[in-house]
């Protein structure tokens, strides 16, 4: 091949000649390596494995979902006794708010059952009830600072704690403080009213003027009252 020129076209002709000679030139190439070919079998195998993994995941998810559904169904079809007990149980219903409710209930029952009016304890009961009514009527919203709960030996079937009211500086009628609220039945109110009429001094200073039967010496007048603590507790 001859290229004749010395001008600027020489380079273009030279390039064209080189392109023509080399572009179609072939050299004995080495045989194709095994790694050159893609491996469709391998890809297919990977696809199978991936599909199996996805299928297992779906099955596991469905199984988990079925378990959840089964648990929720069992909860929905729980025995009626369990549901009733859960709804009616005061301990469960008042959980966190009235934890002492069973004890209070036992106190009331003990009061009803064991605190029977007998000739021996009738005056004491009357005094106690009278004081109780005073606490309810006159001292609602007032505190009895000296009131403390003292376990008392069970004489008349009272298994609960009694209210041990010591003589306090402040009278029960003082205002500006808070106290526990008591629920007093109308019969108790009537009895207290009768006691107030019979013993007028007990109205002004019921604690000091009261001579309970449990303090025969009279040095330390102690008034024992069956107390049912409300939810808020006595302050």
């Amino acid at each position: 091949m001859k290229i004749k020129s010395q001008d600027s076209q020489f380079d273009a002709a030279f390039d064209a000649q080189c392109r023509e000679m080399l572009s179609k030139r072939s050299v004995d190439a080495p045989p194709m390596a095994n790694s050159t070919l893609p491996e469709p079998r391998k890809e297919r195998k990977l696809a199978w494995v991936a599909g199996a993994v996805v299928l297992m995941g779906v099955c596991f998810g469905l199984w988990i979902k079925g378990e959840d559904t089964r648990i929720s169904d069992s909860e929905a079809t729980a025995p009626a006794s369990l549901v009733e007990s859960a709804s009616e149980s005061p301990a469960v219903a008042a959980e966190g708010t009235h934890t002492e409710l069973p004890a209070a209930t036992s106190n009331q029952e003990a009061l009803k059952e064991g605190n029977e009016v007998t000739p021996e304890n009738e005056p004491q009961i009357a005094k106690e009830e009278g004081l109780n009514s005073e606490l309810t009527e006159g001292a609602v919203g007032h505190a009895v600072e000296s009131v403390r709960l003292v376990p008392v030996p069970n004489k008349s079937g009272l298994s609960a704690t009694d209210l041990h009211a010591e003589p306090a500086e402040n009278s029960l009628g003082s205002k500006g403080t808070e106290t526990s609220s008591f629920s007093v039945s109308p019969t108790q109110k009537e009895r207290a009213y009768e006691m107030d009429n019979s013993v007028p001094a007990a109205v002004d200073s019921p604690v000091e003027n009261t001579e309970p039967s449990s303090a025969p010496d009279g040095n330390e007048p102690v008034l024992r009252l069956p107390l049912t603590l409300p939810s808020g507790g006595g302050r």
Partner: peptide, 20 residues
Amino acid sequence: AQRSFAQQELYARFSGQLFA
């Protein structure tokens, strides 16, 4: 289509030029 025969044939036909 990832046919092995076609791939080998393609390599046999064009490998010389590409190797150059």
